[in-house]
Design a protein around this nucleic acid. Structure first.
Lengths: 142, 142
DNA sequence: TTAAAGTCTAGCGATTTAGTAGGATTTTAT
DNA sequence: ATAAAATCCTACTAAATCGCTAGACTTTAA
């Protein structure tokens, strides 16, 4: 399950995704429109900024905007940023790999092999789900 | 990520899965072989029993055994039992469904629709991963 | 009837989560 | 210059969850 933080991040990004290109949105506005505690949202936006998903402008008339287009931001990006590894165990994780203490031989561990397969499937789903889909933007007719 | 409890459960079930049919294994033996704190394992086994994945016999010579064959127990079964919903949000969950408070109309929510699609993919992976695969039992040559 | 096993309830310490508080810093408008 | 508007930063806290332990109780076989 997504943490509340990740859920808020998605909603904030969705809000930015529907803006006109180049428009700046203030934290306070996102907070109100998306029903997110403002101070909490500030922390989330800073995380998103550090990850280069959004950028900001300070001072009067400042705010946030998407740094990458909405069809280039995947659920996997957001998930990993706030909730960490996608795999079910660290030994099966791509980005957050850690060895099992109690595992005799990782290379012959059937559990690990299965969990890697599960991870690959999950990853496929998460990496193919883009922010613009989450927003439900009308797709162009092919 | 799996909770420690779920991980222990998998290991315990794997241990039972490699026993001869009808054999009883004591909690203490599983605990030692799989490096699981015994008292903690007891709780886990009771959960597994309540879920009808294993059964037990009390008293001298008692112990646990699989109630369902290892190719009929999926990762999804175990995950749900200990870690709950597979979907990323409750509104997208099959077995642990809960409506979003802040959602205007669930049926037109693009986020929900996407998360249901992700869930279906994840579910496919988890439901097709069976205990006997986790154990790495030799497959019969077809 | 006693020892060996599972069953049940309660609780505890550490960590994580969700959120708050308060101010520092940067930028713009006047 | 300076005041106002915005982001940025550090620290804290209450509540929940997690991983685990303790101890009493129940059932069964010998």
């Amino acid at each position: 399950m997504l943490s509340q933080k990740a859920k808020y991040a998605i909603k904030a990004l969705m809000n930015l995704a529907v803006q006109e290109k180049g428009a700046l949105v203030k934290t306070a506005v996102i907070a109100e429109q998306e029903n997110i505690p403002k101070k909490f949202l500030e922390l989330i936006l800073i995380d998103l900024k550090r990850a280069s998903l959004v950028a900001s402008k300070q001072g009067v008339g400042g705010g946030y905007y998407l740094l990458r287009s909405a069809d280039k931001i995947s659920l996997a990006d957001i998930y990993r940023l706030f909730d960490g590894a996608i795999a079910l165990l660290p030994c099966a994780s791509l980005r957050f790999y850690e060895p099992c203490k109690d595992c005799a031989d990782e290379n012959t561990c059937a559990l690990r092999a299965s969990l890697i397969a599960v991870r690959d499937q999950t990853l496929l789903a998460l990496e193919n789900t883009m922010l613009n889909q989450l927003v439900g933007q009308k797709k162009e007719v092919l």
